[in-house]
Design a protein around this nucleic acid. Structure first.
Length: 919
RNA sequence: GGGCGCUUGGCGCAGUGGUAGCGCAGCAGCUUUACACGCUGUGGGUCGGGGGUUCGAAUCCCUCAGCGCCCACCA
């Protein structure tokens, strides 16, 4: 290493070392090596979308995981970092559909299901490796021999087994419900996939005429209140005021025109759904309208239907807020969740006026049919206006649910879907440590040695970092709703359910149930096939058989016998929620599972706490009987420097690979970590990466300086030859080790990075290296020394910074060869420790320097390794000088006086005279 | 409507009871023999407002304001 370049050139070494690690199997985990002396450490990667590209969020997330994994290896643990990718149902299917349209001007329907799926697989084969390679460029030390994909054949079996099991337990059921429908992708979505966004629109006030002639007569309020349980319950839940405020009572109310007709004014943002209204609702305790309850109105649209056929009732429902709008609500059971429930309560008919792609149906009338919902909205308002029943349209902003994936407003839509009643909810809720609750990982001894890191065994609790997310998690679990798990897509895990029409009382019954029994017996497996008979309403003898089966063999005979498989696929998260154990060989009790489950840490973003984290915990309990991980670290969301979310459309998302090419992977890692405080959002700035590069260069040159001093690696430090400089830097190193170790054990990554930076740059480079030049570089005569001292004393420059120490050399041993060797020994000691402290953060440069410096041989602390990956994590050390020099009295000696180095301000502060010993 | 977070020099952030810090940017210098991806020096902040606890508050408590995020069926 005699002619090392002046600047660090990451491009020339990164691939070399990554190959080196791979060839040596440094990342490979072996359950057989796990023992009491070598405990297991495991982490499963949040699987990125298989066809996705690496973005800054991945960089942050995976750098943290890599730091944890590398640190655990250096701690002597058997580490499994299990990688893989997710099939990402909607995202991938949409991508392929787009490409198909662009390149061949075809839709998926032109190809058919089978052919389309072939295309998606081809797409996956082509693009699937990209993100994996990007992770390798970043230096991720995943065990690539265990890479998994959520649609691997084994994984498919897991998903189906779980489905059948939950089906058997009655937790999975099929139901006709209001779901979130995405008109763009034409599939149902779960509640979590809907994002509320404020939308500008209009509040249309329109009038409807009351059909009854005696409507003008008022009756006292309250008497007509249907005293149903539902209403009472609603009343209690919503804490509705018993009577409207005077303000509300004054306003609005029915209007009587000159001809004696009575009109109600209704406020709505969606006039296009008027043809689907099947009632008008008022609050039962609203005196303005009480006398009208039970009467009827003529629905305003469609106009081409005779008035008499548009009669709908005026009903009373507690859901109506009399303070809002006019206090009259149009009830559209087919197109609004709340209205649907009102409809159920009052047994209202349902009229659907929207097609799956959100265009108006014939039911909406000749004027609207075929129009897109937003076009129809305007048109409906125009029709009302022309008819003279539109009072006003006032600009209005309200929250509208958007499909997260397709970014279009969702439609509440009645459809038949599969739902899951979540399993193991109570256990999952109880296992996460809440803030302020008992059993915090601080022992009575006041020790914090890694206790939060390893999880608190006594309470069997899981820890969230930062802990405040536990509250969010708890709140969601408390108000948990059944999960809509079916998707009307083609790419994904097809629902393993087959159906066949049959009779429930005769031969069919015997035949199918018998056959299934036989299948179960002959194959001697757990009942992973389950059959139910569902009666047709009103006729128990007519219905259908529904079989849930997870074995591929079953699919074959079921289809031979004329059973038809459900066309839908499962929500992507229905496969990812099994990730921690499905990737380890479940349901087989593999060695991997035995040794590495539950995993130690999970690193992910808080945006998928419901999608993924909570569900994994529930699946973990249900199928492993244990929590899937002991700690969850939530990263911040990466934003640009203006605080905006990174997005493709804004074009503010830098390509990590370009940054790596420009600055090096270590620089990117370091810059990202340095700007990512605990659980706070991260404002990304390329300057941070530049800083990372500068830091690597500094490290490079510090080692280069040591190289230029020549000589072999110095193994032994002679305590009796230590100068105050030596003692000072050794103590600072000792402190830094403690601080960094503690910070990493408590997931305070930014604290660790800060400490590394401060120790290495401000303390080691700025002070120790400069001071050591006095011994290593400069040979100064006594006369020169005196002259310099006099000059300094006269000029008042006593508070002189580091570099000038070079000229002074007040050390007593500066001309001694032994002293010089000892300084080199201290330098080697500090550098070899520093490289190891840096390795989790900067894997490439530290490996390069570890070899270049010759530290691959045994180090003074008696431990080493051929790769820095196997070198032990530095421990606070104990040298003789510590008895003589406590931290309090460790100063730099300079010009016969003692100086305390205030490293953060880089100032010298004179604290005493050496000879007098006074402070 | 509920919950959470943030507010410290021009910008981005550390700092949880005891004399305001880091990085970037600025300014003035430096061909000092590891590093200009560097070195030295330097300017710049009444720590969002108000009140309280305390010998002492950026730090604890209360309150107000602004910004952001999450959850929630007000048409």
């Amino acid at each position: 290493m005699s002619e090392i370049p002046k600047a660090y050139e990451p491009q020339s070494v990164e691939d070399k070392w990554y190959d080196f690690w791979l060839k040596r199997g440094c990342f490979t985990a072996d359950p057989a090596r796990v023992s009491d002396q070598r405990p297991a450490y495991s982490i499963v990667i949040p699987p990125p979308n298989v066809t996705g590209m690496l973005h800054m969020g991945h960089v942050l997330n995976n750098t943290i995981q890599d730091i944890l994994a590398r640190k655990a290896r250096m701690d002597g643990k058997e580490v499994l970092w299990l990688p893989g990718t997710d099939h990402a149902g909607i995202a991938t299917q949409v991508q392929v559909e787009k490409a198909l349209k662009k390149e061949e001007k075809k839709t998926k329907h032109d190809l058919g299901r089978e052919e389309f799926l072939k295309r998606v697989w081809a797409w996956k084969e082509e693009k699937g490796g990209i993100i994996i390679n990007q992770l390798k460029k970043l230096g991720c030390s995943c065990d690539w021999t265990r890479e998994r994909f959520t649609m691997d054949p084994d994984y498919v079996r897991c998903v189906q087994r779980v489905f059948v099991d939950l089906y058997k337990k009655g937790l999975i059921y099929r139901g006709k419900r209001m779901v979130n429908w995405c008109p763009a992708t034409q599939t149902a979505l779960s509640d979590e996939e809907v994002e509320m966004k404020p939308q500008k629109g209009f509040m249309y006030h329109f009038r409807v005429q009351v059909a009854e002639k005696d409507a003008a007569t008022r009756k006292p309020a309250l008497q007509n209140t249907p005293n149903t349980d539902d209403n009472l319950l609603l009343h209690m839940q919503q804490k509705v005021a018993p009577v409207p405020s005077e303000d509300a009572a004054e306003k609005g109310g029915p209007q009587v025109d000159s001809e004696g007709r009575v009109w109600l004014t209704i406020a709505t943002t969606r006039p296009e759904t008027i043809p689907a209204d099947t009632a008008v609702a008022v609050n039962p305790r609203d005196p303005r309208y009480a006398h009208l309850i039970g009467k009827h109105v003529y629905r305003a649209l469609p106009l081409d239907v005779p008035k008499e056929q548009r009669i709908i009732p005026i009903i009373a429902d507690e859901h109506v807020d009399f303070e809002f709008g006019t206090g009259v609500l149009k009830v559209t059971p087919a197109h609004d969740k709340a209205d649907f429930e009102i409809g159920q309560r009052h047994k209202l008919p349902i009229i659907d006026v929207l097609t799956p792609d959100a265009k108006m149906t014939a039911e909406a009338g000749a004027d609207l049919v075929g129009l897109d919902r937003f076009v129809a909205r305007k048109k409906a308002a125009e029709i009302l206006e022309a008819a003279g029943t539109l009072d006003k349209a006032v600009p209005y902003e309200n929250n509208v649910g958007f499909s997260q994936r397709a970014d279009v407003p969702i439609e509440p839509r009645l459809s038949e879907q599969w739902f899951l009643k979540y399993p193991s909810v109570e256990q999952s809720k109880a296992c996460v440590e809440q803030e302020g609750s008992a059993g915090l990982p601080v022992g009575s001894l006041g020790e914090t040695t890694g206790s939060s890191r390893s999880g608190d065994r006594r309470s069997g609790k899981m820890h969230f970092h930062p802990q405040r997310w536990a509250k969010v998690y708890d709140h969601w679990l408390t108000n948990i709703q059944d999960w809509c798990i079916s998707r009307q897509l083609w790419w994904g895990h097809r629902i393993p359910v087959w159906r066949k029409v049959g009779s429930g009382d005769g031969t069919d019954m015997k035949k199918w149930f018998g056959l299934i029994d036989e299948q179960t017996k002959t194959r001697g497996r757990q009942p992973d096939i389950w059959c139910v008979y569902k009666e047709a309403p009103g006729d128990p003898s007519k219905g259908f058989f529904e079989v849930a089966a997870s074995c591929p063999d079953d699919a074959a005979w079921l289809e031979r016998e004329g059973f038809i498989q459900d066309p839908d696929v499962l929500d992507t998260w229905f496969s990812s929620w099994l990730w921690p154990f499905a990737t380890m060989g479940w349901p087989e009790q593999t060695e991997t599972l035995k040794k590495f489950y539950p995993t130690t840490d999970l690193v992910t973003g808080p945006d998928i706490i419901f999608f993924w984290v909570a569900r994994m915990i529930m699946a973990g309990y249900e199928y492993m009987g244990e929590l899937p991980f002991k700690n969850v670290y939530f990263t911040g969301i990466i934003r640009d420097k203006q605080g905006r979310k990174m997005s493709k459309t804004l074009g503010n998302s830098p390509d990590p690979l370009e940054l790596i090419a420009k600055y090096g992977a270590d620089a990117l890692r370091f810059g990202t970590m340095r700007s990512a405080p605990l659980g706070q959002d991260v404002l990304f700035d390329e300057k941070d990466v530049e800083l990372g590069r500068n830091f690597c260069n500094k490290l490079w040159n510090a080692c280069r300086f040591r190289q230029m001093q020549g000589g072999e690696v110095q193994g032994e430090i002679n305590p009796s030859l230590l100068t105050s400089d030596d003692k000072w830097i050794l103590l600072k190193l000792h402190e830094a080790i403690k601080e960094i170790t503690e910070a990493l054990n408590t997931y305070n990554f930014s604290t660790a990075v800060q400490a590394l930076y401060r120790f290495f740059w401000s303390e080691y480079c700025d002070w120790y290296v400069e001071a050591s030049k006095a011994v290593l570089v400069k040979q100064v005569t006594e006369g020169e020394k005196l002259n310099e001292l006099n000059r300094l004393n006269q000029s008042g420059e006593a508070q002189t910074p580091a570099t000038h120490l070079t000229h002074l050399t007040s050390h007593p041993f500066n001309d001694s060869a032994a002293r010089r060797a000892n300084t080199l020994a201290v330098t080697d000691f500090v550098l070899s420790h520093t490289l190891r402290l840096f390795h989790p953060f900067l894997p490439f440069i530290t490996e390069e320097l570890w070899h270049g410096m010759g530290y691959s041989t045994d180090m003074p602390d008696g431990q080493g390794g051929k790769t820095i990956m196997n070198a032990p994590w530095p421990k606070p050390f104990d040298l003789e000088f510590r008895d003589a020099y406590s931290l309090d009295e460790c100063y730099l000696e300079f010009a016969n006086q003692k100086y305390e180095v205030v490293t953060q301000g880089r100032n010298l502060r004179r604290v005493g005279n050496i000879q007098s010993g006074k402070k």
